[in-house]
């Protein structure tokens, strides 16, 4: 039970970080991605801050025998760069650049009640369901059952 409470708290803290940093705003994300416009570098600092903190703590935590509320860590172990990874990341990047929402901000945006946020979210969930079908048709599936990266 305390484990789930802490998971909930991590979610709250994550969303608070998204909100404070400006990641919740698609117009600010586009302002960061648009190098040829009035470039706003703020979100580079979000990435440096978040990945930096993770880098500092990750190595200390992973040396422990197990996490506080589980018997083992669930951390990806693959290191090969395959076609799926590249194609998936490219499709994601195109969608991100079109609208300015990645999955976390797309979820938190629902609380705003903004119609385009709701439309985006429904389309995103549809894409998350559809992936197996498209994946199979394109013959990209190679890693059924293995751990995900993130």
């Amino acid at each position: 039970m305390p484990g789930y409470l802490l998971v909930f708290f991590c979610g709250v803290l994550f969303a608070a970080g998204l909100g404070l940093s400006g990641m919740t705003l698609p117009q600010k994300v586009i302002g960061f991605l648009d190098f040829a416009g009035e470039w706003d570098p703020s979100l580079a600092l979000v990435m440096v801050g978040s990945a930096g903190v993770y880098f500092v703590f990750y190595r200390r935590i992973i040396r422990r025998a197990h996490p506080l509320f589980d018997v083992s860590f669930h951390v990806p172990t693959r290191t090969d760069i395959d076609q799926r990874l590249i194609v998936g990341a490219a499709l994601f990047g195109i969608g991100w650049g079109l609208v300015g929402f990645c999955p976390g901000p797309a979820l938190t945006a629902l609380v705003s009640g903004y119609d385009k946020a709701l439309i985006f979210f429904v389309a995103m969930v549809t894409g998350m369901y559809a992936y197996r079908t498209v994946d199979a048709i394109a013959g990209l599936r190679t890693d059924e059952g293995t751990a995900v990266d993130g």
């Binding site: 803290l13 994550f14 404070l20 979000v46 801050g49």
Partner: peptide, 21 residues
């Protein structure tokens, strides 16, 4: 704000790893 927000996101991710792996 963006740096502080980024650190909070990082700490939340660190917490999920530390508590639940």
């Amino acid at each position: 704000l963006s740096t502080i927000g980024g650190i909070m996101i990082g700490l939340a991710a660190v917490g999920l790893l530390y508590f639940n792996g």
